[in-house]
Design a protein around this nucleic acid. Structure first.
Lengths: 133, 133
DNA sequence: TTTGTTATTGCAACTATGTTGCATTATATT
DNA sequence: AATATAATGCAACATAGTTGCAATAACAAA
């Protein structure tokens, strides 16, 4: 059940951690914090949800990014650890159904003279596979 | 002085419009809404500032995007009108000084099968020309 | 210049997302 | 079982942005 609890550092296997990991294991794609709070706020305080997500991100289990309108989303990391983060893939948000996915695609950033690139965030919007009829 | 008031549709030349356009004419680069409110809130209500920025964007005078942490930024449009928006350039945010600029660079988006791309937002972060010693 | 239309503004109250401090509880270690 | 401390809940707070509405200002037309 807890596929992602392996080398989780200082994270304890609490009910909220289990419940949140379960959310990400039973659905592909990314989930917004708002959605998680909607689903779990009868069981857990929203502060707890924010903090557990923080910890899971620190440990490389999840990664976060901002969707359109600045809301925070989380998704399972593939190939990330607490040491190294592979967050540089783009995210795709469907303008019809709202679904958000990680794209397993390499982005070639443009050459920018005299600047040092450290992070990049690429959010692509359009119609997803289901809504693109 | 009012370089950008030309074909402004239904926009009236009010004091707040003049003041906001002046901010963008006296500085290159993008300005966050928060900064604009800081600078102008003794003269204008923040609601007014939000609404004028909205209108200027609708008219193609400014364009907006979200910086890191989801804050809204505005910058002068070059080559935009109320009809057509050329927002697809990336934005660069300096992690040292906080400065944000539009990059005059074409981005080649990756090919994504079975999806229709409508918008994309690319935020690059690192060290800007000044801070990159 | 005056008048009339309506776009624009200020204000106050509100919404929504996210954060903080602290006392209490639960987890893992010994 | 005892202990150390990570994790939680709660309440209060912080911040960005929005809404409704009455008052005001900009512009066009007379």
């Amino acid at each position: 059940m807890l596929h992602y609890i392996c080398n989780m550092g200082v994270i304890r296997k609490t009910k909220s951690v289990v419940a949140l990991l379960n959310e990400f294991n039973t659905s592909s794609g990314a989930i917004s914090v708002i959605t998680l709070i909607d689903r779990l706020s009868s069981e857990f305080n929203k502060t707890t949800i924010y903090r557990v997500l923080d910890r899971l991100e620190e440990d490389g289990v999840l990664h976060s990014f901002l969707g359109k309108s600045g809301l925070k989303w989380y998704a399972k990391c593939s190939g990330c650890s607490a040491d190294k983060h592979n967050d540089l893939h783009p995210h795709f948000q469907c303008l019809d159904c709202g679904r958000v996915d990680c794209l397993a695609v390499d982005v070639t950033l443009p050459e920018i003279p005299n600047r040092k690139i450290e992070v990049s965030q690429l959010l692509i919007q359009g119609k997803c596979e289901q809504c693109f009829a």
